[in-house]
C-alpha cells in the first residue's frame, strides 16, 4: 500500500539576482514499511525535498499526496536536542506542543525509552549522553507523536565514522521494529545502500531523479552486516558513477 505519492514536484527559489530551479520533475511513491534513501551531490536540493514533504517549505508546483490517516514525522540534521530539557521532556516536546501529554502517551514514550536502552537516563540532560544515545533520544522524540512515515534529514552528519555505523544500525532496528516507513536523505552512498530498500539518486542542480535502485542484497540483514554483502560493492559502484562529483 502506498503511503505517500509525489508527482512532478518542482521548486524554484527566488533571489534578488536570480531565479534558481532547485527541484524539477520529481516523482515517486513510498510504500508501507519501505525504507527509501535519497542520495545526491551536496547542495543539490535533497533536504528541500524532505522539507516540502513535511510542509516546512512551499512547493512551487506538483503534488504531494498523503492519505488522511497517515502522519509524517521529521528528524532534523544533527540531533537538535534542547540542552535545557531532560531526556523525557525532550521526547515529550511534540506532544506538549499539540497538548497531547496524556498519561497514555507519556507511558508510550517511557516505554520507548526503556526499550531502547535509555531507562537510566530519563532524567539526565543531553550534555551527559553519548552521541549515539542523543540520536536515539532524537528518534524517540519523533516517534512520540506516532508518525507513520519518518523523514530523516542527514540524521548522522554530526557523528564520527565509528559511532555513525553503530547509530545507523540502532536507528534502523528501531524503525523496523516500530514498523515505520522512512525516507532518509544522505550524501553517504554506503549508508544509503546498507539501510534502504530503495535508493533514489539525484542529479546536480536542478535536482531531478537520475536513477532509482531497488537494493537486492543476497542476505539482507542489519546495516553493518549489509556492508559485508557480496552485492554491496556492485551497488556502490553503480551509484558512485551516477553521481556527478566535481572534485
Amino acid at each position: 500500500m502506498s503511503v505517500l505519492k509525489i508527482k512532478d514536484l518542482r521548486k524554484t527559489y527566488h533571489t534578488k539576482k536570480d531565479e534558481i530551479l532547485a527541484v524539477d520533475n520529481f516523482s515517486f511513491e513510498l510504500n508501507e514499511g519501505e525504507f527509501v534513501a535519497i542520495v545526491g551531490p551536496s547542495g543539490c536540493g535533497k533536504s528541500t525535498i524532505l522539507q516540502m514533504i513535511c510542509g516546512l517549505d512551499k512547493k512551487s508546483s506538483g503534488e504531494i499526496e498523503v492519505p488522511l490517516n497517515i502522519k509524517i514525522g521529521f528528524m532534523p540534521q544533527g540531533d537538535s536536542l534542547f540542552e535545557w530539557r531532560n531526556v523525557l521532556k525532550n521526547c515529550l516536546l511534540g506532544l506538549e506542543l499539540t497538548n497531547n501529554v496524556t498519561k497514555e502517551n507519556k507511558e508510550y514514550v517511557l516505554n520507548l525509552l526503556k526499550t531502547y536502552g535509555l531507562k537510566d537516563f530519563i532524567h539526565a540532560h543531553p550534555n551527559n549522553l553519548s552521541g549515539g544515545m542523543r540520536q536515539r533520544v532524537s528518534l524517540i522524540r519523533t516517534l512520540a507523536t506516532k508518525p507513520d512515515i519518518l523523514l530523516l534529514d542527514e540524521p548522522f552528519s554530526a557523528l564520527d565514522y565509528q559511532s555513525r555505523l553503530a547509530v545507523s544500525d540502532d536507528v534502523y532496528k528501531i524503525i523496523k521494529k516500530e514498523k515505520k516507513s522512512a525516507i532518509m536523505v544522505t550524501h553517504d552512498i554506503s549508508e544509503a545502500i546498507s539501510m534502504a530498500n530503495k535508493v533514489i539518486v539525484l542529479s546536480n542542480r536542478p535536482c531531478t531523479i537520475k536513477n532509482i535502485y531497488n537494493i537486492e542484497l543476497e542476505n539482507k540483514s542489519t546495516p553493518i552486516n549489509n556492508r559485508k554483502d557480496k552485492k554491496f560493492a556492485y551497488y556502490y559502484d553503480l551509484i558512485w558513477k551516477d553521481i556527478d562529483y566535481h572534485v
Partner: peptide, 9 residues
C-alpha cells in the same frame, strides 16, 4: 534545525 524541528512538530 531546532526551529525546523519545532515547526515539524
Amino acid at each position: 534545525n531546532k526551529i525546523r524541528l519545532m515547526k515539524s512538530l
